[in-house]
Computed example of a mutant assay.
Amino acid sequence: MSGPTQIYRQLFSFLRQHSHYRDLRHLIALGWMVSALICSERLSLSAWESYVPCRARKAQSVERRWQRFIANQRIDINKLYVPLVLLALKNWQSHRLYLAMDTTVLWNEYCMIHLSVVCCGRAVPLLWKVLEHKSAAVAFEEYQPLLRQARWLLRQHPDVMVLADRGFANHQLMSWLQQSHWHYCLRVPCDVLLHGPRQCPREVRQLWPSKGEALLYRNVGLWEDGIYRCNLVLANIRGVKEPWAVITDESPTLQTLWQYALRFRVEELFLDSKSGVFELEESKIRCADALERLYLVAAVALLFSTTQGMAVHIKGLRQQVDPHWRRGISYLKIGLRWLKGVVHKGRELLMPVPLLCHDPQPCFASKKAQKKHYNKIWFSRIRSLQCKAL
């Protein structure tokens, strides 16, 4: 049996066992598309012909098969993908789940909203939505359905924290988070009005601490009305261009900065999806609905390869594909290299494992990178202040 066929059969088995589908042909097509993507590492319909056995004699016939899939409105992305990622998170009920929310723009024409799970130095897609929108800033009404769906899907997870950048901090999101009883760690813009740190409301930019210092505020009011009360961490970190202003519902500590920094894992996900691994930006698809279905192929490949990489690490086989003495590449790339070895070297195809709750070996390309990571944030002075309620 050839390598691509082995990968396809395992993928098809998982899809058929856990996904909810309307037509078995949808699973067959999806399995071959994911297998071809893993082998080619190109999210391009025309690049998959050589990795899929079929009776068609013309490459155009094979490409049309994939075109019919991504144009098929009967395909329910959530019913196909969500059961797979929930299965991968089955061991996380007793651990905190960090959800990173962010947007990325494709070709200055489409905006993709991502809601991802932070796991072992990377982010794994949970839900996504594509809009015909030229800006990365989107209204609350556009991503509220994703949050509501995530709340229902993760109802068995009692400890969830949402991480988001400045573009998401608004009244509607704060109200929704309070009603949902989810924790949050959000960065706010420098022009947000704060009630409490001074006698009169002040903008965040007027309260920045000196370089290398941090201020911890409790019970701060936000915006002009000051209705929403939260805790605030202001940090002016050495080596960082802009100071950070991070709000949270939990006690303000330096841990708040570490939690917010987990949001940057989704940037690695964007890099892997768009140019680093799967080259989404080379896709010729120019339709929001079709892009959502095309990204389904990438999401399944990302999840499958990541869990395969974790299985390789647990089996003690990492050094066969990772030249570093300690882990120096992501589980995604470990999994992809192992799967390519299945195709070209006859390696054993391992059973994927659930996503690991704790990283047994954090990824650093060198000892210098490891030292820089742990010594990156130092403060010469830290002050904690209690603000009076209005």
Rank of each mutant, 00 (worst) to 15 (best):
Q6R: 15
Y21D: 02
L24G: 14
L30Y: 04
G31Y: 08
I38T: 07
A47G: 06
W48E: 07
S50T: 12
C54V: 09
A56D: 07
R57G: 08
Q60G: 08
V62T: 10
V62D: 12
R64Q: 13
R68K: 15
R68A: 14
A71D: 08
R74K: 10
R74G: 02
P83C: 01
H95E: 15
R96T: 12
W107D: 14
Y110Q: 01
M112Y: 12
S116I: 05
C120I: 05
V124F: 00
L126Y: 11
E132R: 13
A139W: 03
L154S: 09
V160N: 02
Q179T: 12
L193I: 11
L193T: 15
K211F: 07
L215E: 09
L216R: 00
Y217K: 03
W223R: 13
D225Y: 12
R229S: 12
N231S: 14
V233T: 03
N236Y: 15
E242D: 13
I247P: 01
D249M: 00
P252Q: 01
T253G: 03
A261S: 14
V277S: 10
I285A: 10
L294A: 13
Y295N: 04
A299Q: 07
L302P: 11
T307D: 00
G309K: 07
G309A: 01
R318F: 14
V321T: 08
D322E: 05
H324C: 15
G328K: 01
K345W: 13
P352L: 06
L356V: 02
Q361D: 14
I377R: 06
F379E: 03
Q386L: 09
K388Y: 09
A389N: 05
